[in-house]
C-alpha cells in the first residue's frame, strides 16, 4: 500500500527538503510507502485533491474547509503556535501610512495563496477597496511580491506573515507594514482522507510524540515547526465556520 501526501504550496522554499525528511520519517513510523507530491500552484493541487489522488494533505485553512465539508477529510493535527496571519506591506519610502491611505485604482501584488489573499482583501475594506476597484497582479512567490514593492511596481503587497518574516533583513528594511492580522485561530492543518480514517489514532500518537524525541524534533525543525497539537472535530468545524464568514 502506498499513501499519497501533498503539502499546501505556501511554505517557504527553504523548507522543501524538510517535507521530504518528514515523508521519510512518516514512512518509517507507519511502515508503509508514502509518496510526497509538491506543487507550485494552488489550482492544480486543488484539482488533483478533488480527483481523489491524496490520502494526507497539509492544507491551508481555506482548502481545509473544502477538504472537510466537500471531500470528507478529517483534521488530525495543527502546527503548534503557528496561526496563519497576513501582512499588507508597502515600500518603506511610500507616503502611505495605513490601509485607509490607499485609494481606488490601487495596484496590488500577491501570490495565489487563497487565505492570505482573502484576509488581505478583508483588511482593505476599511479603505472601501475590493477586487472591483483595485488591480491585482498575481506572482509566483513572496520574494517576487517584495521585489514588485521595492521596484515601485505596486502600491501594496499581501504576504503570509511567516513568509514575510523569513525574507532577508535587507529586503524587509526596504518595506513597511501597513497592517498585520491578529486572528490567531486560523491555521494550517494536516488532514486525512475518508479511506484512511482508521489510522487517525495511530497517526495522531506518532505526530504528537515527534516533539518528544530527538529524531522527531529535528524533522520538525527542518519544516520550521515546533510540534503538532490535536485538532478535534469541533475545533475544525469552528475554524471552518469562521472561514465561512470571511467568504462573501
Amino acid at each position: 500500500m502506498t499513501l499519497n501526501l501533498t503539502v499546501s504550496p505556501d511554505f517557504a522554499p527553504d523548507h522543501i527538503s524538510g517535507w521530504f525528511i518528514f515523508n521519510t520519517w512518516l514512512q518509517r513510523q507507519l511502515e508503509t510507502r508514502v509518496h510526497l507530491e509538491l506543487y507550485d500552484c494552488f489550482d492544480k493541487q486543488r484539482a488533483d485533491i478533488k480527483a481523489g489522488k491524496y490520502d494526507l494533505v497539509y492544507a491551508n485553512p481555506f482548502d481545509a474547509s473544502m477538504l472537510v465539508r466537500e471531500l470528507g477529510f478529517k483534521a488530525l493535527v495543527r502546527p503548534l503556535s503557528k496561526p496563519d496571519e497576513t501582512i499588507i506591506a508597502t515600500h518603506a519610502e511610500s507616503s502611505l501610512t495605513c490601509v485607509e491611505d490607499l485609494a481606488e485604482g490601487a495596484q496590488l501584488v500577491a501570490t495565489d495563496d487563497p487565505d492570505v489573499n482573502r484576509i488581505g482583501m478583508i483588511m482593505l475594506e476599511p479603505a472601501d477597496l475590493d477586487s472591483a476597484n483595485t488591480k491585482l497582479n498575481t506572482v509566483d512567490s513572496y520574494v517576487i511580491v517584495a521585489k514588485h514593492l521595492l521596484n515601485n511596481q505596486a502600491d501594496a503587497g499581501f504576504f503570509l506573515k511567516d513568509a514575510y518574516d523569513e525574507l532577508s533583513a535587507l529586503i524587509r528594511k526596504q518595506m513597511k507594514v501597513l497592517v498585520s492580522s491578529e486572528i490567531s485561530v486560523v491555521h494550517h492543518a494536516l488532514l486525512v482522507g475518508p479511506e484512511m480514517q482508521q489510522f487517525i489514532p495511530q497517526l495522531q500518537d506518532k505526530l504528537i510524540g515527534m516533539a518528544e524525541d530527538e529524531k522527531g524534533k529535528s524533522v520538525l525543525e527542518s519544516m520550521n515547526l515546533l510540534g503538532w497539537e490535536i485538532m478535534t472535530e469541533e475545533e475544525t468545524e469552528f475554524m471552518i465556520d469562521l472561514i465561512d464568514t470571511l467568504i462573501d
Binding site: 478583508i122 472601501d128 468545524e237 465556520d241 470571511l246
Partner: peptide, 22 residues
Amino acid sequence: TVIPNIRNGQVVGYTSVRRKPS
C-alpha cells in the same frame, strides 16, 4: 457576519465574526 453552525444537518448555534468597517 453571522452564520448558522450546522452539525449533522441541525443548527446548533451561530458564529458571529466582526471586522473593521469603512
